[in-house]
Design a protein around this nucleic acid. Structure first.
Length: 273
DNA sequence: CGGTGGACCTGCTGGC
DNA sequence: TGCCAGCAGGTCCACC
């Protein structure tokens, strides 16, 4: 589900509601996530105060006042919402934290592909899940020259290269397809064969599309919701993703869908060459 | 090392 | 109406 713009939107919603709040109690209702939730997680953070909310790629970081950071990844179907405790509990609510504001933070994840772990705040980057991430798209290290170098070293299709979190961190299948559409490049193109000019366009559009999607509070094609359980609006601006058979917004062609590996790729056969 | 395909889960949709 | 196949926004691991 959530790619960088969705996770950023959630963080922006949580920040003013969580910063400065104390975790009165933490209940783990289901430990079987992608990585089993440590039984010692709740006692380790109960009574601690949240000093800030951050994001790295698709990871949500809740900084606590004990040199501890509480880290979430939402996988495909995760939500992290700030709700009134009277809100009926949902099936697949796996973690519930009650704050000294009286509100609750609830982690909900039907497919359980997400994770929730603790790390020492001064050693977050060493966590196995974070250690191998490449730069975020907004990191000054990410630019056309960086991406061109990565493209030349790989035999993969460019859609798959954009999904590789070690190359760029934060892009998922929706935005990989949208970026390539705007850059005028077909998703199945081998990254090695791209011209410098094409790669420059991809790098520029990466930043542009993600910025725009954040402005629209993310994409809700089905179940993505922000920290207040509201939908995003970028689905109304998608040019190719999930639009198989529909008319291109810029020419009379119909959007095509192909399977690359096990995942769908979408493109306009006329606008993308 | 690099690339690919399947596994991990639940839920929804569309075709018959 | 019911059933089943196929698909879903992510990552990881075994295998070549």
């Amino acid at each position: 589900m959530p790619e960088l713009p969705e996770v950023e939107t959630i963080c922006r919603g949580l920040r003013p509601r969580l910063t400065g709040r104390k975790l009165e109690s933490v209940q783990i209702l289901e430990r079987r996530l992608r990585i089993a939730v440590d039984a010692r997680l709740a006692p380790a953070i109960e009574g601690r105060r949240i000093t800030g909310v951050g994001r790295r790629a698709k990871f949500i970081l809740l900084f606590l006042d004990s040199n501890t950071t509480w880290i979430f990844h939402l996988g495909m179907s995760g939500k992290l919402v700030h709700v009134d405790p009277a809100t009926p509990r949902q099936k697949h609510d796996h973690i519930i934290a009650t704050l000294d504001s009286g509100y609750q933070l609830r982690y909900h994840d039907p497919r359980r592909f997400g994770l929730s772990v603790l790390a020492a705040s001064d050693a977050i980057a060493e966590l196995p899940q974070l250690a191998r991430l490449g730069p975020d798209p907004f990191d000054p290290r990410f630019d056309g020259a960086y991406l061109y170098n990565a493209c030349r070293k790989s035999e993969r299709r460019v859609r798959d290269l954009l999904l590789d979190q070690r190359v760029i961190a934060g892009i998922g299948n929706i935005y990989a397809n949208e970026i390539l559409c705007r850059a005028g490049v077909r998703p199945a193109t081998r990254s090695r064969r791209l011209s410098r000019d094409q790669v420059e366009r991809i790098a520029r559009q990466t930043i542009e599309v993600l910025r725009e999607a954040i402005r629209w509070c993310g994409t809700s094609v089905s179940d993505y919701r922000d920290a207040d359980d509201r939908r995003g609006e970028f689905q109304d601006h998608l040019r190719v993703y999930d639009r198989e058979g529909e008319t291109c917004r810029f020419c009379p062609s119909r959007i095509k869908r192909v399977s690359l590996g096990n995942r769908s790729a979408y493109y306009c056969p006329a606008c993308q060459r």
